[in-house]
Every structure is written in C-alpha cells, then in structure tokens.
Design a protein around this nucleic acid. Structure first.
Lengths: 239, 239
DNA sequence: CTGTAATCTTTATGA
DNA sequence: TCATAAAGATTACAG
C-alpha cells in the first residue's frame, strides 16, 4: 500500500469526480484524452457515460463508433454508466427502454465490452478506484485477455463478402453460403453457370442450372449479378 | 418476427416478471433450475439479483460460488442486477459501497461476467427479451452488415462488391478492377490461381501468378482472401 | 439500437 | 403467356 494508485483523467471530466478520486488518495493526472475518459493502465481504460449521454449517443448512433475505437485501442476497456435511471425519467425517453437495453445487450453480448453501473459521480470514483486497485496492486493474478470481438470469424467474412452482390443482404447471403458448400467461389460459379430461360416473346420464364431449385432467386437476380461479376476472360457479353 | 422468443424461467422467480415476459410476447417455460434463473439458449443464461440480494450474498460470500458455477456451466452467462440504488439507501449499507463495487469490479474484470443494470422487474423483462432477440433471432450484426449506397452504376457496384474482400477498400478495389479487365470474376480467379512462395524456413517469400506484379498485395492478402473465397469444387465446365 | 415505411424481387394465381 | 396480387427481403429513414 505504499504507492498511490494512479489514474489519467481527461481534462473535460467533471471536477467533482476528480476531487472524489483525490479524496480516495489517488494520484490524479489530467490530460487530453481522445478515445477514453480514464486510463488506468496500458490495457485498461474506461469510458464514462451518464444515462442521458448514453441515450443521446445511441439515437444518433455515435455510441458505436466510440465503442469501436475504445475496443480497438485497449485490451480491457470498461464502460461505466452513471445514473441510467434518471435518464428514463425524461418523458420523451420513457418509451425508449427497448432501444437502450437493446444497445446494452449488443454491447456486452456482441462486443464483449464490460458494463458497470453507478448512480452518481462519487460511486463512479469508487469504481475507478477499485479497478485501479485490482490492476495496479494485484500483480499476482493477471487479467484474462478479453475475447476479441472485433475479429470476425470466417463465416461472417464470407457472408459479408456475398452481401456485395446485388439485392443481397444477410438472409440471402446465408442461404447462398449454405447451399453452395460454404464456398463463395462456388456461389460465383453458380451464378455464372446458371442461365435465364426466356419465353418466345422475350420475357424471363425461369432458370436453368445451379440456381434452378433455389427459392427466392429469380431471373432479375441472376441478370444483375452476372453484370456485376463481369465477363470471364475473353468474350464480350451482349445484354 | 414470426417465431416467438423462448425463455426458460426458474419457478421461484416472481410472477410479475413472468407476466412482463408474456406481455412482451415471449414463450415462457417454467422449470426448476439449479444454477441460473433464466435460460435463453444452451450458451446463454442469466442470474438475476436484486440489489439487496446482491449485497447480502457478497457479505456472506455466497455470491462467488454461485457465479463460479454459472460461469462453468454456460459459455455466455449474464448477471442482471436489479435496483442496486435502492439497496444503498439502507442505512446499514451506506458505508459498504467500496466493498460492493470492489466485488462488482472483481466480477467483470477478473471473472469476465457481464453485468447489466436495471431498476425494476419490468426493465429486467425487457433485458431478457432483448437478449433472447439477439440470441434467437437471426438479425444482422452491424459488424457484418454492409451499408449499401443506393443507385449506382456498374463500376460502382463492382467496386462495392470487391470491397467485401479482406483488407480491401475503395482504393484496392479499383486497382484490382482495372488490372483484371473490369471483371470481378477475373479478380476472383486471379486470387485463386496465384500462389504464395515460401522460403525453406517456412516464411512467405513472395507471390507467383497473376498477383505477382501487383504492388500492394502481399502474401497475407492472398492467404486471407483465399480463405474467404473458399475451396472451389474441381470441375471442368466450358463456360 | 428499434420500428416503420418504401422498394424491389420472386412466387402464386387466374384469365 | 400475361397481368396482377401476395409474400419475402432489402434498403431508407426517423426517433
């Protein structure tokens, strides 16, 4: 206990919070921080959001890019949410609970970002103090590395790739991937190999080839995506 | 939105909560659960604790064994803390904040157990509903959803398509498109046809094939994108 | 994030 | 075969 716990605080954070930290006998260093509000070690940084801040930043979808930067920069980021209850007392936000809890769920479930609730600045100070205590005093029990959520797995990357096709979102991308043996290459080949059958009067009648028996994919889909994929090698494709 | 979200609830949980869940149009199955209070999938289970429960179980250190069992049993456990604020209003617990927040810090920092705060049962129900939604519904993660600008010409669509490749933005996509005769199909073929040359010690030395003379595309690029494209079934087809 | 509406495409149906 | 309506996905936008 000889050494003071140390914390770097963004200069825009409220003075009351800084004073609370000093009262907890912490060494408070002020700085201009870009990505987090508090830095406790190379790996551990905290973003503090009041309830109103949180909801506002969800609405204009600024929250998620902030979080992305936080996650990319620190191995152990933490999101402190201060006084969420008060925010819900605003009449215009009463009906936004589903949005807010949906966002929180996304944050911890999909992005693996730890959330810790407090109800006022003094409690936030305590939390920061406890985190610093665990991180800076207890070297014997190193932090577990956070599962990295930003790394997409192969399937997600393949779905992402297939979504580049015309009129293809998550749903169709998954159908295609599953139908073509988890191989986007085979999807491409399937598109190129399939042909559109026309009636005598020139209207599309149906499909022939790998896409023949696939529900939800019609002539228009093939025509548009053949265009995107372009001709293979030599021949020019009249349309 | 067609299928009901499903949740298994421990029979000892309050009826008000179950009713809230039903009001959210969830299929509520009651059961005797040993380790968690709510089960949302094989992997996802929730423990719900009111603030007073939480503090009491911290005091007699019963909390940590509960948590350990939870973590051992489920891949993605969640701790829902309901109305922590109220608990601190108890006079005898006013001075325990350091203790409580220390425990919470331990829980998310060392145990990696996500914490989610609510202030009443109705909100807890919303949280459970949102978790079920993310787990059971097939919704597109913003991480893998591709934003697609609206109407564009062919070249833009092709560039957009190629941007689905690993480590490929606007710039690389254009280079590829121009180099491979305005044909994304040829780009794909080029990736599949190119080979990575290794040194005797197993380090990537260079490239061989269509990508050989392309600046800015190295072994890593090829390896990652071969993975995304997947293996192609070997078949001869006159196209 | 969530919800809703507008848009596009496929698919089913009847003439 | 054509025309139209119903069903499904994707895209756009607002709160």
């Amino acid at each position: 206990m000889s050494k003071l716990l140390h914390i770097i605080v963004d200069h825009r954070e409220p003075n009351s919070l800084k004073n609370h930290l000093r009262k907890l006998e912490m060494n408070v260093e002020e700085a201009h921080l870009d990505i987090a509000d508090y830095i406790i070690s190379d790996q551990v940084a905290c973003e503090r959001k009041t309830g109103t801040d949180l909801i506002a930043s969800i609405m204009d979808s600024r929250l998620f890019e902030q979080i992305d930067r936080l996650i990319e920069t620190y191995d152990q980021p933490v999101l402190i949410i201060e006084n969420l209850t008060a925010a819900f007392e605003r009449v215009e936000w009463k009906k936004r609970k589903k949005h807010v809890y949906g966002a929180l769920t996304y944050i911890f479930l999909k992005r693996q970002l730890p959330i810790i609730p407090t109800s006022k600045v003094s409690e936030t100070a305590i939390v920061l103090n406890r985190i610093a205590s665990w991180v800076q005093e207890d070297k014997s029990d190193p932090l577990i590395a956070r599962k990295s959520p930003k790394k997409r797995n192969l399937r997600d990357n393949q779905i992402f790739f297939l979504q580049g096709l015309h009129n293809t979102g998550q749903k169709k991308a998954e159908i295609l991937l599953d139908h073509f043996n988890q191989s986007p290459t085979n999807v491409i080949k399937g598109i190129l190999k399939s042909k559109v059958i026309y009636t005598k009067t020139g209207n599309p009648k149906g499909l022939e080839g790998p896409f023949e028996k696939l529900e939800g994919f019609g002539p228009k889909y093939l025509i548009e995506n053949k265009k995107i994929l372009g001709s293979s090698e030599k021949e020019k494709n009249p349309n």
